[in-house]
Nucleic acid binder design. Structure first.
Length: 362
DNA sequence: AACGCGTGGTT
DNA sequence: TAACCAAGCGT
C-alpha cells in the first residue's frame, strides 16, 4: 500500500514509546471529570460518542445526564417512542443521530441480547456507528487497540508529525488511522485515544494552542519549526445559501395553534414546526393564496414582528414571523394539526421554531 | 467524493 | 460580524 510506506516514512525517526508514555501520563493527570467517564459501560460510551459528534462537551453534558436517566440501558431506549427520543434530543441538532441510535439499539437488543458488540465487524454494521465511533467504543469500553480518529486526532497528529494532507478530504482520515495503528498503546488504548482527543480539546486547540503546556512539546515537529498554527491544512467549504420564509403563528377561535410535522427524511426529520411559506418566488399576497391552497384555511395577518435566522451547516433560513388568525376554511393537510398551547411542550421543535413560542397568546 | 445534516461558542 | 469550529455519518 502507498499509505503504508508513507506512514513508515513519517514515523521513521519518531520515538513512539516516549510519545505514548508522555500522553498517557498527562491524560491520567489532567483529564476532565465527565459523566461518561464514570465507568466503562459500553452503552454509556456509545451514547456519549454519538452526542459528541460535531458537538461540544459543555453542550452534551446536560443532555447526556438527562438521556441516561430517561433511557438508562439499551432495552429502555429500544422500547421508547421515537418522538420521546427526539424530544430528549431537542436542541442538540443532527437529529438523525438520535433516530439512528435508536435503530441500532433495537438491533442490539434483538440480535445481541442487549449487549453492545465488542468486535469491529458487528459494531461497525450498526446504524450511525462509523469508523470513529466504532474505534471509540472498542478502545474506551473494551480496551481494544483500535484507532478512533476524529478532528482532534487529525489536528494533533498533523502538528506533532508535520503531516500536510488536507484533513477536509475523506481519504486523509485513513492516513491518520494507519498512523494511530502504529502509535497506539497496546497496554492502555483507552487512555491513548482519549488522551489524543483531550490534548486536542485542552492544549492543541485550533486557534491558539498552548504549546508551552503541552506534554508532547519535545516531540512536536510543528512546534519545533514554529508552524503549529499553519497546521492542519484544511480547505474551506462554500458558504450557506440564504432562503427567505414566512413563519406563521396561526391561532383559531378555540385558542389553538397550528403546527405540522416535518417529513420523516431529510432536514430536521420528524420534528415539528410552525407552517412556513417559502418566499423565493412569492410576495406576501401570493403567499396567502398559496397557503389557502395548501392548508385549506383562510387567514389574516399583520406586519412581520421579528426575523428569526436558522443557520444550518449548508443553508440559512431567514424567517419573518407573522401572527395570523383563522377567518375561514377547513384545515385540510396531511401533517398539520391544531394543538393547545399546553400540548406544545410534548412535541420536539428545532431551536429556531422554539423562538416563535413566545407569540402564542396562552 | 461531495454533499446533506443543527446548534452554539469564539474570534 | 461573518467565518470558523466542535469526540462524524449516511448517501
Amino acid at each position: 500500500m502507498k499509505n503504508q510506506e508513507r506512514v513508515k516514512d513519517i514515523l521513521s525517526d519518531f520515538n513512539k514509546t516516549q510519545f505514548q508514555n508522555s500522553l498517557i501520563e498527562w491524560f491520567k493527570k489532567e483529564q476532565r471529570i465527565l459523566p461518561w467517564r464514570e465507568n466503562q459501560d459500553p452503552y454509556r460510551v456509545w451514547v456519549s460518542e454519538i452526542m459528541l459528534q460535531q458537538t461540544r462537551v459543555d453542550t452534551v453534558i446536560p443532555y447526556f445526564n438527562h438521556f441516561m436517566e430517561k433511557f438508562p440501558d439499551p432495552k429502555s431506549l429500544a422500547e421508547a417512542d421515537e418522538q420521546e427520543v427526539l424530544k430528549a434530543w431537542e436542541g442538540l441538532g443532527y437529529y438523525s443521530r438520535a433516530r439512528n441510535l435508536q435503530t441500532a439499539v433495537k438491533e442490539v437488543v434483538a440480535d445481541y441480547d442487549g449487549v453492545v458488540p465488542d468486535n469491529p465487524k458487528d459494531l461497525g454494521e450498526l446504524k450511525g456507528v462509523g469508523p470513529y465511533t466504532k474505534g471509540a467504543i472498542l478502545s474506551i469500553a473494551y480496551d481494544t487497540p483500535e484507532p478512533a480518529v476524529d478532528g482532534n486526532v487529525m489536528r494533533v497528529l498533523s502538528r506533532i508529525l508535520h503531516v500536510e494532507d488536507d484533513i477536509a478530504k475523506p481519504s486523509t482520515r485513513k492516513v491518520f488511522e494507519q498512523l494511530v495503528r502504529e502509535l497506539i498503546s497496546e497496554e492502555d488504548p483507552s487512555s491513548f485515544n482519549q488522551g489524543m482527543m483531550e490534548l486536542g480539546a485542552l492544549i492543541c486547540t485550533p486557534k491558539n494552542p498552548s504549546c508551552l503546556l503541552c506534554p508532547i512539546q519535545d516531540q512536536c515537529r510543528a512546534f519545533e519549526q514554529g508552524i503549529e498554527t499553519e497546521l492542519p491544512v484544511k480547505t474551506s467549504k462554500k458558504k450557506q445559501k440564504k432562503v427567505p420564509y414566512l413563519l406563521l403563528v396561526i391561532e383559531n377561535d378555540a385558542g389553538e395553534v397550528l403546527i405540522e410535522q416535518r417529513p420523516s427524511q431529510g432536514l430536521l426529520a420528524s420534528l415539528w414546526q410552525y407552517p412556513m411559506v417559502a418566499l423565493e418566488d412569492l410576495d406576501h399576497e401570493a403567499a396567502k393564496h398559496w397557503f389557502y391552497g395548501e392548508y385549506g384555511l383562510k387567514i389574516e395577518w399583520g406586519e412581520p414582528v421579528e426575523q428569526i435566522k436558522h443557520v444550518f451547516s449548508h443553508l440559512i433560513w431567514e424567517m419573518e414571523v407573522v401572527i395570523a388568525r383563522v377567518v375561514g376554511g377547513q384545515l385540510d393537510h396531511e401533517r398539520a394539526q391544531f394543538v393547545t398551547p399546553q400540548e406544545m411542550s410534548a412535541y420536539p421543535f428545532p431551536v429556531s421554531h422554539q423562538k416563535a413560542h413566545k407569540y402564542i397568546s396562552q
